[in-house]
Nucleic acid binder design. Structure first.
Length: 612
DNA sequence: GGGAGAGACGTTTTT
DNA sequence: CGTCTCTCCC
């Protein structure tokens, strides 16, 4: 992709008419950095984007806003709670609402509406009606709606300028896109030449409704396209390539069975498989291995630790911190885990935009059981009848000019909120607001404070951001940093993350911890039909395949490429149950564990496991 | 309507 | 283990 973009730029194609789409922001930044480093004229004007950020940008345009009638204000995960409570009364409880919502997003991701004979179940239809009313009233959008909204806009407006904006579109990781995403690409490419890159054997996003068949269908729909196979594995040591080939060969349902071709000059690499008596031993063993490597001169940034659950990754992180090895953990959007962080973040949103109805809904509900759903229902009904905003209605109740039953708790919260917002408004600048909302030394807001300070510093360096824009620019950058955390590929720290997050990265030393049956592969969902379970198992195998092929051999630089797979015989039963790990046996608070079946499937090229 | 307490149930991965 | 649901009671 990088070379193709470089060639287009050299031929004088305008950077703005080239769209390189990548799956994650990491990959987008990687591409951008590499193009700049290649010193191609025009590379500066080129922005690699994720499909998601492109969609947000297009939906924000005035003429698009008018056409869709929807506000692209995505809901954070934590902001879904009051939505769920507001809908649970009419739709059979929280679990039912979550299921309905999941089905709604899945239908859009798969574009089920376009399938001939598709009929919407009446219960789903009423739910969708109520959901959309909630979202319209609160001027917001589900994250899962962002791409479908753009899809609808593009499909219904064949003359839209957006459909002819690009001359060249390049898409990475095509197998990880769902139908809606693939269709958006197709609609954007009316006047463009398209190049897609993907690998069936790395499709690991079925829970996001990825549509890997799209690659083969694309070749049929675009007859005459060049189809180039890339079978040489330039990254991995030869022994790892043999193991990966043996592993993936166990997948029966492969449309195009194919083997990676090892590059002999990469050398065999260094592969170890280690079993420990307990999770504690495994954690310490991994930490000691890393400490030994760092002491012998391996840069910490060369080491990548993959673990599919926080209960395994986090203790390794802490063990490394204790050994004073620079390390970063990339589990979930941790900045907003703590209630105090959510509260402060919601206040910031409301401070910057008093019309942010979602933030207001959240803040007035937070103290109540079920988010004061009953009282809020009355506030909203009154808004809809009178045409007033929620803020105005709450002001009237607070002033005693209006009385609605069951709104006592809401009004108490509203009065507190008004006082706090007034106090924040009186502060001289953003830096003091950040200081007040995320105070120094408060554990719950430590991460979001750091993120905010970094963004403030970054904005100070730039010119041309002034006046009223500062606040909203700050908020949108903070929001983006929380939603899509940076995972830089060049870094000074040991990186610890899930296997999904490791996609697109590579490292001279890769360690996969917790290779146990019941976690990797996870326990199949036995309520599903057998065929479905088989598909799940194959995806788990692809996940492990992605993991082991992160190892990078650079024998000339003294880095042979090291892969270490570890697992343990036992772990505390509570940790296992809490993390959804199905133990082989359980007794006296201890879960007995077995080695992942994938270890044996690595075949004869894999070394014998050793005891650690 | 909403609080307290008992029992059932699901647990992850990402934009 | 934490969250959700159900029941009982005010």
């Amino acid at each position: 992709m990088k070379r193709r973009v470089a060639r287009l730029l050299e031929h004088g194609i305008a950077p703005a008419s080239i769209l390189p789409v990548t799956f994650t922001r990491v990959a987008a930044e990687d591409l951008h950095r590499e193009l700049v480093s290649m010193d191609v004229a025009g590379a500066d004007g080129l922005t690699g984007v994720t499909l998601h950020s492109l969609a947000m940008r297009m939906l924000m345009r005035n003429h698009v806003l008018g056409a869709t009638g929807r506000v692209p204000r995505p809901l954070n995960d934590f902001e879904l709670e009051p939505l769920i409570c507001d809908l649970m009364g009419a739709h059979g409880g929280k679990k039912a609402v979550k299921k309905f919502k999941q089905a709604y997003e899945a239908a859009w991701a798969r574009l089920q509406h376009e399938h001939p004979g598709y009929v919407l179940d009446p219960a789903d239809a009423t739910f969708q009606h109520d959901l959309l009313n909630w979202l319209r009233f609160h001027r917001a959008m589900l994250i899962g709606e962002v791409i479908p909204q753009l899809y609808q806009y593009l499909r219904n407006n064949p003359a839209a300028q957006e459909r002819a904006e690009f001359q060249h579109i390049l898409v990475d990781e095509y197998q990880d896109l769902n139908r809606a995403e693939q269709s958006v690409i197709a609609l954007l490419s009316d006047h463009a030449q398209v190049c897609i890159v993907g690998d069936d054997d790395q499709s690991i996003y079925s829970f996001k409704h990825a549509h890997p068949d799209g690659i083969r269908q694309w070749l049929v729909a675009n007859a005459g396209a060049d189809d180039l196979g890339l079978d040489d594995c330039r990254r991995c040591p030869t022994r790892v390539v043999q193991m990966a080939n043996s592993l993936i060969d166990h997948n029966q349902i492969r449309p195009v069975p194919r083997a990676l071709v090892p590059l002999p000059t990469n050398g065999p690499g260094d592969v170890r498989i280690v079993q420990y008596p307990s999770l504690t031993n495994e954690v310490n063993g991994v930490a000691n291995i890393i400490a030994g490597m760092v002491a012998n001169g391996t840069p910490p940034g060369d080491i990548l630790v993959l673990a599919q659950r926080g209960v395994i990754g986090t203790p390794i992180y802490e063990a490394l911190v204790a050994r004073q090895i620079p390390v970063r953990s990339y589990y979930a959007e941790a900045e907003l885990d703590a209630l105090e962080a959510r509260r402060a973040f919601a206040k910031l949103k409301l401070l910057i935009d008093r019309d942010d109805r979602v933030a207001l809904r959240w803040l007035v509900g937070i103290d109540g059981n079920n988010w004061h759903a009953a009282g809020y229902r009355r506030v909203r009904d009154h808004c809809e009848a009178s045409g007033l905003t929620p803020w105005q209605v709450l002001e009237q109740i607070a002033a005693g000019n209006l009385s609605l039953p069951h709104t006592g708790g809401i009004v108490v919260a509203f009065n507190d909120l008004v006082a706090e917002l007034d106090a924040l408004e009186a502060l001289p600048d953003l830096a003091s607001i950040v200081d007040e909302l995320f105070p120094a030394g408060q554990i719950a807001t430590r991460d979001i404070r750091q993120l905010s300070l970094d963004i403030l510093a970054e904005m100070d360096m730039e010119e041309g951001i002034d006046g009223e824009d500062i606040n909203s620019e700050f908020l949108s950058r903070l929001q983006e940093a929380i939603n899509q955390p940076d995972i830089p590929s060049e870094i000074q720290d040991v990186r610890i993350m899930s296997l999904h997050k490791s996609k697109g990265l590579s490292a001279p030393v890769t360690i996969i911890a917790g290779c146990i049956q019941g976690l990797l592969p996870k326990q199949p969902d036995n309520t599903l039909p057998a065929a479905q379970q088989a598909l799940e198992m194959e995806e788990q195998r692809r996940l492990f395949y992605v993991g082991i092929t992160r190892v990078k051999a650079a024998p000339n630089a003294g880095k042979p490429g090291t892969l270490i797979l570890t697992y343990s015989q036992t772990m505390p039963l509570a940790s296992a149950l809490g993390a959804g790990i199905a133990p082989a046996q359980m007794q006296y608070g201890l879960a007995s564990l077995h080695a992942s079946q994938f270890i044996a499937e690595l075949g004869p090229a894999a070394p014998q496991p050793i005891a650690g």
